[in-house]
Computed example of a mutant assay.
Amino acid sequence: MSKDPRTVVIIGAGVIGLTIAHVLSSDPSNACEIVMIARDMPEDIDSQGWASPWAGANWTPMPMGGLDERIKRWETVTFNKLWDMIPTGLVKPLPSRMYSDQENNFVDPWYKDLPRDFRVLPSHDIPSVYKSGIGFTTISVNPSVYLSWLKSQLESRGVQFVRKKLRSIEEAADAAGPDGIVVNATSLGARSLIGVQDTKMYPVRGQTILVHAPHLREFLGEAEVYPNGGVTYMIPRPGPDSTVLLGGTTQAHNWDTSYDKETSDQIFTRCAALEPRLLEKDTVHVLSHNVGLRPAREGGPRVEIEWMKLPLEGRLVPRMDSAIPQARKVLVLHAYGFGPAGYQESWGAAEEAVNLLKSSILRSGSN
């Protein structure tokens, strides 16, 4: 990076923006001042305006890793990073089982070398309602604790946090200054951020139930998605409070953030069929019903560099002040659109994003 500190403004304080800031600030050679500007901050765990507090926040097999080598690399880097963090208590190792009603669903999966202890389950270890199954050891984090840890790490390194809703890339560039850099980690906000307005972004509605269930200590799930967007999984979380997230739904293009009782009943019924101990009323207690919108993108996540011309064209573009803007270019790093995989791709994507940023600065001849 530049020898003279420059300002890097990161828009969005979700898991992707925070992880990029962590990677950027971890290397002393990256001489920069980092400012995170966001409407929602890590302490806003009850806000439905962003996705990070509502995530499953574990590693779960997803199809994109088998279709895109870049995403597979992100997932590999992230899994290994989180696995190494287990001694901190922030990350929980989880023995896991997944089942399918398809006989050949788990034949040579792309992820077989990624989680630990991967194995195809023998027929006598598979419930009779399923036709195949796999076992492995995965990891999970508790979003409220993990996001707060990331923020505290960044604050200890001098990263500034500013609570503000930015309406345009130009506002972010103004905050970064003449030689500044903008990182666009706005997730669903990329649809409406002026200068980006990415109409490929769309929500995937997720509804879950958080329960206290101290005797549930493994990840359980089904591979299939039901016609109404229902999915079945149970994710124990790290920490002494013995919480387990029961899911869920994956409903594309659904913006509804309201609680739906019928959906909740279906989630609990499916999970209890897979793990009957959920019906033990003396030990299992419902703590909350949750609804969040995953920030998905047609064609997959966008992680790339763009040099944007300022001022943005159009007389309706809002500005922070009435000063006449000077014509210039600003370096923008886009990192958004991770859908349901933000946590499990975060470290790999952040490392690539920072490398892209450093390479672009070197190519531009900046000193």
Rank of each mutant, 00 (worst) to 15 (best):
L287G: 11
M308T: 12
E222P: 10
V225G: 06
I181W: 00
D68V: 12
R119M: 12
D125A: 07
R297T: 01
G314D: 11
A349P: 03
G189K: 10
I71C: 07
L193Y: 01
L312Q: 06
D241C: 08
Y336S: 08
H289E: 15
R191P: 05
V303S: 00
R205C: 02
A31K: 14
V162M: 08
F268T: 05
G133R: 00
E352K: 08
L331E: 00
A190Q: 04
A272N: 13
G158D: 03
L333S: 07
K3W: 08
H22K: 06
G292T: 07
R163S: 10
S288P: 03
A213D: 03
H22V: 06
E155P: 05
S123M: 09
P143K: 13
P95L: 10
L278K: 03
S346M: 07
I16G: 02
F136N: 00
V286W: 08
Y202G: 10
S140K: 05
S288H: 09
E218T: 09
R363Y: 02
Y99R: 01
Q153K: 13
R297A: 04
D84H: 15
L333C: 05
S128G: 05
L216I: 15
Y259M: 12
I139K: 11
Q251S: 14
I209T: 05
S360G: 10
A172N: 03
E103Y: 10
E33V: 01
Q344V: 02
S288D: 15
D113R: 12
H334L: 03
V120R: 11
S148K: 15
Q344R: 14
N228T: 14
Q48M: 12
Q153V: 00
T138P: 09
W255K: 15
R297S: 03
S132A: 13
D256A: 03
P109W: 04
T232H: 11
L333D: 00
S25K: 08
E155N: 01
R167T: 06
A272F: 05
E33G: 08
T76P: 01
G49W: 02
K165N: 15
R157A: 04
N30A: 12
A296C: 12
V182W: 01
S242D: 15
I134H: 06
G12H: 07
P5N: 06
V120H: 15
P203T: 13
R97M: 09
T199K: 12
F118Y: 15
L121M: 09
E222V: 08
M308P: 04
D101F: 12
G17P: 02
L82G: 02
E33F: 06
L246T: 09
R73W: 05
P61W: 07
T232W: 10
R277A: 13
K112N: 08
Y99Q: 08
L274R: 08
E170A: 06
V204S: 14
D108V: 03
L333E: 00
S364W: 08
D256I: 04
A252V: 14
S288T: 06
W59E: 03
N58S: 15
G177C: 02
A31E: 06
R328L: 05
A213L: 10
G248C: 07
I361M: 12
P63S: 11
G299I: 04
S29T: 12
I45V: 15
K112E: 03
L188E: 01
T78H: 11
I45A: 10
V317Q: 10
T60E: 13
M98K: 12
L245Q: 11
G49Q: 09
P227I: 07
A176Y: 02
Q344L: 09
A176S: 09
P28F: 05
R277E: 13
G229H: 07
D179G: 04
T19G: 00
